[in-house]
């Protein structure tokens, strides 16, 4: 499988569900995906996490958020021989099969596209933030003003100084669009297009799933025995459209340790899991209250 740069696909027309497979065993941590994402989608600067130097290795983007739709995580660890091991994982919105953000949105601003991706319509977003707390991966966020000192830009795409200036789309919820506008034109997403080592693979989800199995097996054969597939089958999101190969956890572990290492939930659970229970308990409360009232009158 390879990224079809320079060719036009028609996944939108055909309604093919597409996604990503991100493979840290091929990632060189160059952050071209982060830059290409911001460049194509005109995402403003969020300043760089200055205070975090060192503790996050070469990572100054911090986390996924309203102004960071692709984020390369840098993990410094050790091999069994005590030599350094440096792992890079480019993370992104998972475009869940059953998406917490989408289900929580009260204005209908979040919708599912023809290619199965989850998209926020800024015009209809009222900034309530329900989606933010409903994402089990902590991906979607409301755009605030940069917390760190803002880096200026001669291209005029970011505020030039100070954090008092307004940011485009401030207050609204933002996240990866899977480059929906590029999908409509038949182009692969900007991040996958820019990735020099094809660590970010883009394509139809069914093909990616098949490729992912082969890839993990290949890695095992090569001695990368800790490689596991992170595909969101655990928990209640019914699978994710942006899968990852994870490394660095315990061998044989079903993505648990590795997920911890990368800060991903091993059991991603959206709040709708609690809906039945909370509605039941509400109903029970109503019934019990009614009974209590009735008893109070009767007695």
């Amino acid at each position: 499988m390879k990224n079809e740069r320079g060719q036009r696909h028609n996944y939108v027309e055909r309604g093919v569900t597409v996604g990503f497979l991100t493979d840290p065993t091929l990632c060189i941590g160059c952050k071209a995906c982060e830059v290409a994402c911001k460049e194509w989608n005109d995402v403003p600067s969020d300043g760089g996490a200055r205070a975090a130097i060192g503790s996050r290795s070469y990572d100054h983007s911090g986390d996924l958020g309203a102004s960071t739709w692709r984020h390369v995580k840098f993990v410094e660890t050790e091999t069994e021989e005590g030599l350094p091991r440096w792992l890079f994982l480019s993370d992104v919105c998972k475009h869940c099969e059953r998406a917490g953000c989408l289900e929580a949105c009260p204005t209908g601003a979040i919708w599912r596209t023809e290619v199965g991706s989850v998209l926020v319509d800024d015009d209809r977003c009222n900034g309530c933030g329900y989606c933010v707390v409903s994402c089990p991966f902590g991906v979607i966020d409301r755009r605030g003003r940069p917390t760190a000192e803002i880096i200026g830009s001669i291209a005029g795409t970011a505020p030039s100084s100070g954090s008092s200036e307004a940011v485009a789309g401030e207050g609204g919820a933002f996240k990866c669009t899977l480059c929906y506008d590029r999908q409509v034109e038949g182009k692969i997403p900007a991040c996958a297009n820019a990735c020099p080592t094809d660590s970010i693979m883009f394509g139809p989800l069914v093909d990616l799933k098949e490729y992912a199995q082969v890839r993990v097996e290949t890695l095992h054969q090569r001695g990368v025995t800790d490689a596991v597939l992170y595909d969101g089958q655990e928990g209640n999101v019914n699978g994710i459209h942006a899968m990852s190969v994870l490394v660095g956890g315990s061998v044989g572990d079903a993505a648990g340790d590795a997920a911890d290492l990368w800060g991903q939930p091993s059991n991603p659970t959206a709040p709708y899991a609690y809906l039945a229970a909370s509605w039941s308990s509400a109903l029970l409360t109503v019934v019990l209250s009614a009974v209590a009232c009735w008893l109070a009158f009767v007695l």
């Binding site: 300043g47 996490a49 760190a148 830009s153």
Partner: peptide
């Protein structure tokens, strides 16, 4: 450039 600078500030 902001997009490069914020990555190594």
């Amino acid at each position: 450039l902001s997009r490069l600078s914020e990555l190594q500030p």
